[in-house]
């Protein structure tokens, strides 16, 4: 038990420290790297809770994909962080005021009425004891929660369509690869045997056509 508690405090302190560094770090690349440390510690906390599946997801999806994507964006996009920070500092008092009021309200409420009051005693789906978490989740997702699963799929489809609609540009003057044309090539059309007269050049058909078009 004490070992668990020790690890809990280790992960929790590291997590809060690295999360703070994410915000205060001057270099955005360092900020993203500390974000990854935060995710790792969060995964550690999930393992302590016995939710090993979510812990692995966190490592694979957030560390493996999302954080790396962040790194790419930070490194490849020319974002002026100094300017962003200036805006942040200008609006910070208002933000702090609103955040502070909400926080004070919540703290006052919970201090006055107590934290534990009214917490649910039942869980929506009881945790099965004889099978692993992953298996239990799989059984739920594809039976009882299949409606949510399909709905989430539709949301992702909309995101995909949206990304394509808003960003894909068909530039003129760009020759795109036509795979079907490549596959359908055969020697009869792809090659031509030309008799070259000495002292003359050969102009391929495609070039003459392009020149005629221009």
């Amino acid at each position: 038990m004490e070992l668990t508690a020790a690890f809990f405090y280790l992960f929790a302190i590291l997590m809060i420290a690295s999360a703070t560094t994410v915000i205060v770090a001057k270099n955005p690349v360092h900020a993203v790297l500390f974000l990854i440390v935060t995710f790792f510690n969060a995964a550690g906390l999930f393992v302590l809770l016995g939710a090993e599946f979510i812990a692995m997801l966190l490592v694979i999806v957030y560390v493996g994909a999302v954080a790396v994507l962040f790194l790419f964006v930070v490194m490849m996009l020319d974002v002026d962080f100094a300017e962003l920070k200036a805006g942040f500092i200008r609006n910070a008092p208002v933000g702090l005021l609103v955040g502070g009021v909400v926080l004070a309200e919540l703290v006052a409420l919970f201090v006055a009425k107590g934290f534990g009051l009214g917490m649910a005693k039942v869980t929506a789906a009881a945790i099965p004891q004889d099978i692993s978490n992953t298996e239990a989740l799989g059984r739920l997702i594809y039976t009882r929660y299949v409606y949510f699963f399909e709905a989430a799929g539709l949301v992702l489809l909309v995101a995909m369509i949206g990304a394509i609609v808003l960003t894909l540009k068909h530039k003129p003057n760009v020759r795109r690869q036509s795979i079907s044309a490549q596959v359908n090539r055969h020697p009869a059309t792809a090659m031509a045997v030309v008799k070259v007269k000495s002292g003359e050049a050969i102009v391929p058909d495609a070039v003459t056509k392009r020149e005629a078009a221009e």
Partner: peptide, 13 residues
């Protein structure tokens, strides 16, 4: 939530 997101995400686009 899922219905709301599906509706809104299409609206943003």
């Amino acid at each position: 939530y899922l219905g709301l997101e599906l509706m809104s995400l299409a609206l943003y686009v």
